[in-house]
Each structure stands twice: as structure tokens, then as C-alpha cells.
């Protein structure tokens, strides 16, 4: 069953929620095996990435270079585990590959590498740059007259980078309505709370001030994500930024809102506990 075939919204939401649990399970498992990586921001983005890959975006894992596909750019590249989980679940590569994350000879690098991993649209990891490349992609696709859309996930700490706002102005200037940004707003960065380090507030006002359409949602409510993506599709003449309020480490009790799990792997014991918690939430998709 694919998400596209589900007519009933409630069934679709349940389907996507189960997929998101699968992605979260895989994230914990792979980061645990890698003994390093970024679980917190991968878990906060899981519902958004799931909804994009398993409902919103048109893409063909069996023909990854299909020119008319929609593009996803993980600008917050450290959340690579959530992207890899989504790519494996979509069928871009075997799921067992996930357990090689960050190992020498693995195609799954610590941060996404377009030349190594099937389905990665562009190499990211240095913050701010992925967002800017997504603007370039949207421009290129429009030049070619394709109706492909570009989705890019940015972080809140990442929003402190100047290039984000350079790219924001360019995208608005050129009315790139085939571009959708999603801000994974968990209010946590490596050194602490975004609001206490260099606050990005009032971020819901900043994006319209930069010429973007803005939608604020709860980034863990699949229904709200679906509605926001629908709304973005209807907006013409400007790009859309979805400000998704999220919780770092979402769905693992001892990781939720814990800054340390930004870039720290769980221990073997913590992995077992986390996987059990995720399984207890419902079936895995």
C-alpha cells in the first residue's frame, strides 16, 4: 500500500504515523550501532521527513535520476540518520546498509554525500548551505519549465547563519513558489537553547518580512504537516516557509528536550530502552 492510494485522511495519517515510528526506530538503531551521530534533531524531524517522502513528494526510488522528481535537501545535514532511514524505507538502498552508518567504506557518511548515497540530492552538513543550494535547484527546475518542487529542511540553530537570509531574499526576489522550506524548530542547538544563545525570534514574523509565505504548525502532528504542505502548494508568486514547532529527541522519553542528545549516541542499554518505547507507541510502518 502506498500513501497515494489512501483516500481517507484518517487512514493516511495512521499510515504515516506508523512510518514515522519505523524511521525513529531505525534512527536509534543506526546511531547506536555507529556509536556517534545526531539522534535529537533526527527524531524531531521524523514526522516531517516521513510526510514528505511517503506522501508529498513525487519520486521514483527505482529511477533516482527521474528529471521530473521533487527534490528534498536536508540543509540541517547532521540529521542524516532521518534522511537515510527515509531513503532505505523508500527503497533507494537495502535497509541493512543503515547499520553501517559512519563506518569506513560505508556509503552512509556522517553527513549526506550525494556522490555516495543513492537518493541524496546534494551533499550537505555545513550549515546554511543546503538551503541555498535548494534555492538554486528551484531556479534550475523553473528554468527548465518543470513542475517539480523543492523541499528543504533547515534547523533553528542553522537559522543563525547569514547565508540563510541571503538565500531567502533571492528566493523571494525571484518568486520561487516551487520552493518550500521547513524549519525544524526544536529550540535547541549544541551549546544550549537557541533562545538563550542567539534567539531567532520572532521567526514567524521574519519569514514574511523576507517576502515568504509562512505557516506555523506543530511539527509532530501529521495532519497539520499535510495541511501545511497543501497550503504551500496553493501559494503562488512566493516561496513558503513552514515553521514546525518540534521537540528535540521526540518519542524517546529520556532524549526529549535533552540538549546532550543533539550529537551523542545512546548507549546499548539506552538503545534497547528507546526501541522499546517506540514500539510501545504503535505498529512500525
Amino acid at each position: 500500500m502506498t500513501a497515494k492510494a489512501i483516500a481517507d485522511k484518517r487512514t493516511l495519517v495512521e499510515y504515516l504515523e506508523a512510518k514515522a515510528r519505523r524511521l525513529r526506530w531505525d534512527i536509534i538503531k543506526m546511531v547506536g550501532l555507529a556509536r556517534s551521530g545526531h539522534p535529537g534533531g533526527s527524531l524531531s524531524a521524523a514526522d516531517i521527513v516521513t510526510t514528505l517522502f511517503f506522501h508529498e513528494m513525487k519520486h521514483k526510488p527505482e529511477n533516482k535520476n527521474w528529471p521530473d522528481r521533487d527534490r528534498f535537501v536536508l540543509s540541517k545535514g547532521h540529521a542524516a540518520p532521518v534522511l537515510y532511514a527515509a531513503l532505505a524505507e523508500s527503497g533507494y538502498f537495502p535497509r541493512e546498509d543503515l547499520w553501517t552508518l559512519r563506518k569506513i567504506d560505508s556509503h552512509l557518511q556522517g553527513h549526506p554525500d550525494m556522490r555516495k548515497t543513492p537518493g541524496v540530492e546534494i551533499s550537505t552538513g555545513s550549515l546554511g548551505m543546503g538551503f541555498s543550494t535548494a534555492v538554486g535547484m528551484a531556479l534550475g527546475l523553473r528554468l527548465d519549465g518543470r513542475n517539480s518542487r523543492v523541499y528543504t529542511l533547515i534547523g533553528d540553530g542553522e537559522s543563525q547563519e547569514g547565508i540563510i537570509w541571503e538565500a531567502a531574499m533571492f528566493a523571494a526576489q525571484h518568486k520561487l513558489d516551487n520552493l518550500v522550506g521547513i524549519l525544524d524548530y526544536n529550540n535547541m542547538q549544541i551549546d544550549g537553547l537557541v533562545s538563550e544563545i542567539v534567539d531567532i525570534q520572532p521567526v514567524v514574523a521574519k519569514w514574511p518580512a523576507f517576502g515568504w509565505h509562512v505557516i506555523e504548525i506543530n511539527g509532530h502532528k501529521v495532519e497539520q504537516i499535510l495541511d501545511a504542505l497543501d497550503e504551500a502548494r496553493s501559494i503562488k508568486g512566493k516561496p513558503t516557509m513552514i515553521v514546525a514547532n518540534t521537540i528535540k529527541g521526540k518519542c524517546v522519553s529520556f532524549m526529549e528536550r535533552v540538549v546532550d542528545f543533539h550529537g551523542k549516541a545512546p548507549t546499548d542499554e539506552e538503545v534497547d530502552k528507546a526501541l522499546a518505547e517506540i514500539e510501545a507507541l504503535g505498529p512500525l510502518g
Binding site: P67, R71, V73, M114, E121, I122, G128, M129, S132, T133, A134, V135, G136, M137, A138, L139, G140, L141, L143, D144, G162, I163, E166, A167, M169, F170
Partner: peptide
């Protein structure tokens, strides 16, 4: 505009579209 960093990264994005 006066935004060389964005120019370079956008060039990369454009290049991915051929």
C-alpha cells in the same frame, strides 16, 4: 546582489539540475 556565499551555493544547486 552582494551575497557571494549564496551565489556559490546556488550555483551548486543549479548544477544538480544539469
Amino acid at each position: 546582489g552582494v551575497a557571494e556565499q549564496n551565489m556559490m551555493a546556488m550555483a551548486a544547486g543549479l548544477a544538480t539540475t544539469g
